[in-house]
Amino acid sequence: MPDNPPQMSSPGVQQPTRRNFSVAAIYGIWAAMLAALGLPGAAYLLIPSRIRRKNDWVEAGDITQLVPKVPLEVAFRRNRVDGWRVVSEKSTAWLVRLSSNDVVAYSPQCTHLGCAYHWDQRRTEFICPCHNSVFSIDGSVLEGPAPRPLDRFQTKVEGNKLMLGPIQTSSSRTV
């Protein structure tokens, strides 16, 4: 906003101190109001919803069927909280028995840009068709632009059944 009136000598103009006070008050009040609207607005858009609803554990299969060192892609239905809805959707995971008592489940998306990768039985590696990221059977990055190892589902074993929880990225997992 312009600071100087065009004609300082015109009779409608008050003393400088009163004028300065008015200008400061205008700026101050508008700044306060913009903050009172803008900050909650930013919080509304940027601070994630309080999560009251949790995603349930889902059954992914029988771990006795897993051959050590041979990844198996399994499909299952899970309920996902999507905004104000809970959607039941088909989902997949790659199950791998790394050792006799260590079964892991990878999220089916490449950690680079989210393409679906596949298992190459001949090379015994996971290969992403989009930008040629290559992962080893334990999920670590061997080649390509993938920034981190394959993401894993939280898992727990009930009897012979493998239960899957939320997906954890390797950055939130203790490495």
Partner: peptide
């Protein structure tokens, strides 16, 4: 969705 805004969304 309005209930979602009221009960879950921040502000």
């Amino acid at each position: 969705s309005l209930r979602y805004i009221l009960t879950e969304v921040t502000a």
